[in-house]
Amino acid sequence: MTQELGAQDLAPQLVPLNAIFATDFVQILVPVTTANTMQEVAAAVAHHVEGRRVRAQPFEKVVIHNGKRLPADMTVAAAGIKPLDHIAVEYDIPEQS
């Protein structure tokens, strides 16, 4: 039996994703790594769209994977996001009462 490395110890692996940013018109290819946090993933997706086709808004961005909102500090590896998975990145707009 060999020792298994924990997620923290594994060298980052490339994870190409299918991503949609908010109200953008198209799905895009965005490469991230297993070590990236959701905050970094959101920024990587936003880089291609925000202020380019979708107006930048002053809100946090959140990654949605398989219908679940993922915490900003969670890594791609910990979230179980696999190569070619789909993610959506949305502005976390506070509800207006």
Binding site: T23, F25, V26, L29, V54
Partner: peptide, 28 residues
């Protein structure tokens, strides 16, 4: 459906920022 995105593209062109209207990745 499309007006808001063309507006951002237009504003980038008018701000002389063509770079923002050019791709850095592939569409899926």
């Amino acid at each position: 459906v499309f007006g808001d995105k063309w507006d951002v593209l237009i504003d980038n062109v008018n701000a002389n920022n063509l770079e923002a209207t050019l791709p850095e990745t592939l569409p899926w």
